[in-house]
């Protein structure tokens, strides 16, 4: 089936099996391996991408659902050379250990800060509660989101 969609700002028209999962399309077909898979059943958030700006799970989406949509993956988060302020904050605040949850966490954070540019720590915890991390204990991820939000507000 021909599927036309926008991936990180670039128009794509591909021929792919409509019932394969979006995570497979991204990783296996298009080589975008920044989107991870860690459960395949909605429980971990590692596969989070933005679909028309909203965080969704690419392991629970079929390729056909991309038709006409615009999606963002971690690879599209900072189109230039410079890191996105949220990414920078993740690096600066030590929010990354093994890093396997990080792409999903970042996508979830983008979604959060679009909805709420000034979340408190409890709201951040709630917003990231669909993204499991086994390494960090979450604290430095919360620190990073808090700091990125402040930084982005200052820029406005």
């Amino acid at each position: 089936m021909k599927i036309a969609f926008e991936l990180n700002g670039i128009k794509q028209e591909i021929d792919y099996l409509p019932d394969r999962r979006v995570v497979d399309l991204l990783r296996e077909e298009l080589g975008y391996t920044g989107t991870k898979e860690a459960c395949g059943s909605g429980e971990c958030g590692a596969c989070t991408i933005l679909v028309d700006g909203v965080s969704k799970l690419s392991c629970l989406m079929l390729a056909a659902q991309l038709q006409g949509r615009s999606i963002t993956t971690i690879e599209g988060m900072s189109p230039g050379k410079k890191l996105h302020p949220i990414q920078q904050a993740f690096v600066d605040k030590g929010a990354v250990q093994c890093g396997f949850c990080s792409p999903g966490m970042l996508m979830a954070t983008v979604d959060l800060l679009q909805r709420n540019p000034a979340p408190d720590r409890q709201q951040i915890r709630a917003a990231l509660s669909g993204n499991l991390c086994r390494c960090t204990g979450y604290q430095k991820i919360i620190d990073a989101v808090e700091s990125a939000a402040a930084e982005m507000r200052d820029k406005l």
Partner: peptide, 12 residues
């Protein structure tokens, strides 16, 4: 800063 940070958070 951990030198592995940028590669990991950019998905690369």
């Amino acid at each position: 800063k951990r030198v592995d940070g940028p590669g990991k958070i950019s998905g690369l």
